[in-house]
Amino acid sequence: MVLKSLFSKPATYMYPLLTREPMVGSRGSIVNHVDQCSYCTLCQKKCPTDAIVVDREKKTWAIDSMRCITCNACVDVCPKSCLEMLTTYSSSKTAAELSR
């Protein structure tokens, strides 16, 4: 075991330089392809953390990525299949960047 550890490559990645390939089907972050969206508010109703806000009148769709728990419930329920679960995580942000 000692020899193996000495002569094998490290088990970790040099993170900022090398990132791991995301797995297929990994729950990373949510995007809405808004041009297909019908603003039916189903995702807003199904969201367990109330992270999604849809306005039918103004035709806006917004998600609070800090509240979102990437549970996939909205993607499952979307009738237009315009919500998509990306396999990549949303990058970390500061509060100032968020409110921008």
């Binding site: 797995m23 297929v24 089907g25 990994s26 729950r27 728990i69 990437t70 996939n72």
Partner: peptide, 15 residues
């Protein structure tokens, strides 16, 4: 954890 992520989509919270 890699097996778990590949099968469920989450590493610790399987969902």
């Amino acid at each position: 954890l890699d097996i778990i992520e590949a099968t469920t989509g989450g590493r610790v919270i399987f969902g």
